[in-house]
Each structure stands twice: as C-alpha cells, then as structure tokens.
C-alpha cells in the first residue's frame, strides 16, 4: 500500500511512538525561559573539555545516552541513529557516534536536522524495517560562530534581527511499541529561496520555506490549522515568526492563534539574544523538554512540528549566493 498522500506527505498506518526524549544545554539556555525543562545544564560552554567541538560531541552523546536511559532500554536495542549538527563534515556528530558504536546515518539539514531525523525514523519504523531508532541534533554557539561568522572575542556589533545559536542537543527515541505521543504524518519540504543574502537574516530567509511546507501539509493531509493545538517552527526567531503569520494570511490561512516559534521560547528578553534562538538545537531542546512534557501531561494533544534549515555555507555566502532554505514537518499526536 502506498503511504504517500498528496504531493509531499506521508501518512503512517502504524504511527511510530516517541517513547523517550532527553536534552542538554549550555549555561545561557539554562538561565532562559525554559529553565526547568532540561536534563542537564552545563556550567560553561566547554564543560571541562579541550575544545568547543569536543564539547558539542559530548552534548550529543549525553542526549542520546540519557534518552535511552530514561526509557530503561540499552544502547544495543537501538537499531539505527539519525543525527547531525552544523559543523563542517558533521564533525561533532561523527565523534559522538564513534563512542556510541551504533549503526548510524548522518544527516545535514542545518537547523531542520531534528525533524528530518524524526521523519526518516518514522518512515523506517512504519515500513517495518526497524523497532527502535534515535534521532538527534546538536549545535554549539561558539563552534558555530567561529565557523560561520567571526571569532568569539571579536568586538562586533550584531544587528537587532540576528539570532543566537543555541548550545545544546536533543535526542528523541522513536519506537514501534511503548507509550507516548505518536508521529502520525510527515511532510517533506522542498528548497525555497526568496533571494535573501544576509546571513544575519536567517529568520526571514527561512520563513517562506516554513510557509511552503505548512501550506503543503494542510493541502496534502486535508486539515485546517485549527486541527492542531499548536504549530511550532524550529528557529525563525521573532522576525521570521511574524513573516510566517503574514505570508500565510496572504494565502488565506490564519495561524496567529496557535502558532509559536521555538526560537522565541529559549531566551529571555534581557539575555541579549536579539531576535531569538537558532541552530539545530533550538528546535531539539524545546521539543525534547518543554513540548514533550506538555504532550505527556495531555496539555497539548495534537501538534505540527517543523524544522527549518538555512542551507547556506560560508563559501556560498562569500560567492554572493542567496540562502536556500528548507522546512520539514511532522504531526505529533497523543493517542
């Protein structure tokens, strides 16, 4: 039976279950809005390790191990791991995976990696290939900053529309049996590029991709935004969030009542993060802490969760190319 529905979506016949999640963050995120929703808050951005990159590997390893430990299974039961981060050649992911010794497929979807991993996990589980898959993503502020922008000690002024890369990691265990919220449908995004070239304006660059995927999801599955208690996007920040609402309004879809962006949920106003959080971990830490708990408490029953990624590189930016963006979506529902 073909499980594809519409142009870009899949509907799962045996919806895979998110049986466990775990997250870990740096000190700045720990002092933010979601203070009580983290498994571990590091004392500093190095956590006693030799480099930021090593620290990021540690973040991911911790998140995956913790998620497995929380549902009291063992690492050997994990059939496959989907993971990725922001660094060149997925550096931190690969070193984390070296220690975990599980079958692994690396993903690069920039900040959409978490949802990309969950979507693929759900497809493989519903397809009957595996029983338990872990999807994980990480980012590290200092490591990302030095790769994409300026050295951290440089005295540069960030524009007010800029976002702050989250230091942290989140891991989701998706299984064919157990209890918890289920991944019921998924929509695979396509690359959308509205010609934004400023790497400080990633929210505006990604907003059209998010809009495209939300729109397509509603068309394919035949739902209205009101079907969902909440629609979340990954890391558009306050500027991108406003654009998504505006662009969807122009298409005749109103999501202003049940939509929030994870990037607006991490930092407090006075933490100087400007337009909000970004990075793979932005959506990962919010999903694996706050949102998952709200689902388990039945305070949220049906959500649409989108990962949004800006797929530029330092080379593409220097060659004056615009920023290609993507958004993937999964709907998560309590039974």
């Amino acid at each position: 039976m073909n499980k594809k529905q519409g142009m870009q979506s899949v509907v799962f016949t045996n919806p895979p279950i998110i049986t466990s999640t775990a997250n870990i963050v740096g000190p700045m995120e720990g002092k933010g809005l979601l203070q009580g929703y983290f498994d571990y808050i590091m004392p500093d951005n190095l956590n006693g390790l030799a480099s930021w990159e090593q620290c990021e590997s540690y973040l991911m390893e911790y998140a995956i191990k913790k998620a497995i430990e929380k549902e009291s299974s063992t690492m050997e039961e994990v059939d496959c791991v989907f993971a990725g981060d922001l660094l060149n050649q997925l550096m931190s992911t690969h070193f984390a995976m070296k220690n975990l010794k599980r079958p692994f497929l690396g993903l690069y979807g920039a900040c959409s990696t978490m949802v990309e991993g969950m979507l693929l996990s759900a497809i493989l589980l519903d397809g009957g290939f595996f029983n338990k898959i872990v999807a994980a993503a990480s980012s590290h502020h200092d490591a990302a900053e030095r790769q994409y922008r300026f050295p951290n000690e440089m005295g540069v002024q960030r524009p007010p529309g800029a976002q702050w890369t989250v230091t942290g990691s989140g891991a989701v265990v998706v299984s064919t049996s157990g209890s918890g919220p289920r991944i019921t449908t998924g929509t695979i995004g396509k690359i959308v590029d509205y010609g934004i070239k400023d790497p400080n304006a990633m929210g505006p660059a990604m907003a059209p991709a998010a809009v495209d995927t939300i729109w397509q999801h509603l068309q394919d599955i035949g739902r209205t935004p009101a079907y969902y208690d909440m629609i979340f996007t990954g890391d558009l920040g306050s500027v991108g969030r406003d654009l998504v609402i505006q662009l969807l309004q122009e298409k005749g879809v109103d999501i202003s009542n049940n939509y929030q962006d994870c990037g607006c949920m991490v930092y407090r106003e006075n933490q100087d993060a400007h337009a909000g959080a970004s990075g793979c971990a932005s959506s990962a830490i919010v999903l694996c802490g706050y949102i998952y708990k709200r689902l388990l408490q039945d305070k949220l029953k049906k959500i649409l969760f989108l990962g949004t990624g800006s797929l530029h590189s330092t080379t593409s930016y220097q060659q004056k190319e615009s920023i290609p963006c993507i958004a993937h979506a999964v709907s998560i529902e309590m039974p």
Partner: peptide, 20 residues
C-alpha cells in the same frame, strides 16, 4: 522571480527591527 524577491525583501524590511 526578481519581482517576487523584491516584494518579499520589502516585506522583510518592514518587520525587521532597525538598529537604535
């Protein structure tokens, strides 16, 4: 495409906060 991009850019400019 170019017109669409320009239109979007002006929308972005409208919502992006300006530096103090």
């Amino acid at each position: 495409e170019k017109m669409q991009q320009q239109k979007y850019q002006s929308k972005v400019d409208n919502v992006t906060p300006t530096p103090p």
